[in-house]
């Protein structure tokens, strides 16, 4: 029982990261219909920027995290403008190739600047806590709490602000949104900024627990896609639920059956769910 609770807790921590990253991706992929395969690499770059600011500029963890998020938001806007905006009227696969070009560029950039080896951010909150029989560190609890706060903030942003309403309008009907005077270009920029910034925050939160390395983004980006598809394209609640499901399946499969095959369970679960419900858990339209 104790092992079970411990694994579920680990799953929730993993799932928090997946959920936050996937929400960012579902905004871009589900709403703007851009298959941004470089999303995981935004995440990786966010972790590296925090690492750089903390170790080289000796900034505290929290200001470094905020600065990293702001820089990534700018990068998101830049990438949208240069890479994805010219792809808008072309087939999806072209945007897909551009995304691959972008991720190669970002990964090579990080390799050139910081080298191929992994780095570690000093953990700001390493004290262990005993919570209902689960032994964990404060940082891990913070990851879970930060994910909840971030998800609530994103929800308020989309549902309660004018900018959020325009994003939803573009998602529902691009031409209709243009007709009522919504600037679709600006919506794309803002969506990319929000998406990249949330990835940077999620990455910075877990960076003190795991290593940062140039390849950390690839697998996470792929899992974020899996979560988005699992939850249903463009569905924010779907991305959140999907993220926690993936985290828990992975932790339980890894803990009870085999650590080597933990990703096999996660990916196998997705194929199974799609076989039963081809549009994902919360999906409406056929993508």
């Amino acid at each position: 029982m104790e092992v079970f609770v411990q694994q579920v807790f680990n799953g929730i921590m993993l799932g928090s990261t997946y959920a936050v990253v996937a929400v960012g991706l579902t905004l871009v992929f589900g709403i703007l219909h851009i298959p941004n395969f470089a999303h995981g690499h935004f995440y990786m770059l966010g972790a590296y920027l925090t690492f750089f600011l903390v170790t080289s500029w000796k900034i505290d963890f929290w200001p470094a995290l905020v600065l990293s998020a702001v820089l990534l938001a700018l990068l998101g806007v830049l990438v949208e403008r240069i890479v994805f905006r010219p792809m808008r009227d072309q087939p999806h696969v072209n945007a897909f190739i551009s995304a691959i070009g972008t991720l190669m560029f970002l990964e090579a950039f990080v390799m050139v600047v910081w080298g191929p080896q992994g780095h570690r951010i000093p953990n700001p909150y390493p004290e262990t806590v005993n919570l209902l029989g689960v032994v964990t560190t404060q940082q891990r609890l913070l990851v879970i709490a930060a994910a909840v706060v971030l998800i609530v903030l994103l929800h308020l942003f989309i549902k309660k602000t004018v900018m959020g309403a325009t994003i939803e309008a573009v998602a529902q009907n691009r031409e209709g949104a243009m007709l009522v005077g919504i600037n679709v270009d600006r919506v794309s920029s803002v969506t990319f900024a929000v998406s990249a910034a949330t990835a940077a925050i999620a990455a910075s939160m877990v960076a003190p627990i795991f290593m940062v390395s140039p390849t950390m983004g690839a697998l996470l980006g792929m899992k974020a896609f899996i979560v988005v598809i699992l939850g249903g394209l463009g569905s924010v609640p779907g991305a959140i639920v999907g993220g926690y499901i993936l985290g828990i399946v992975e932790a339980l499969g890894g803990g009870y059956i085999s650590a080597d095959y933990k990703d096999v369970f996660a990916f196998g679960a997705l194929i199974l769910i799609l076989a039963i419900k081809p549009t994902g858990l919360f999906g409406k339209e056929v993508g």
Partner: peptide, 24 residues
């Protein structure tokens, strides 16, 4: 199972299979 899905869903479902092969 995977061809029941369409578009991006199919791309990701097949991607999962590819990753499973590489892990196995």
């Amino acid at each position: 199972p995977t061809l029941r899905t369409r578009g991006s869903y199919f791309a990701i479902a097949t991607l999962c299979f590819g990753v499973i092969v590489s892990i196995v």
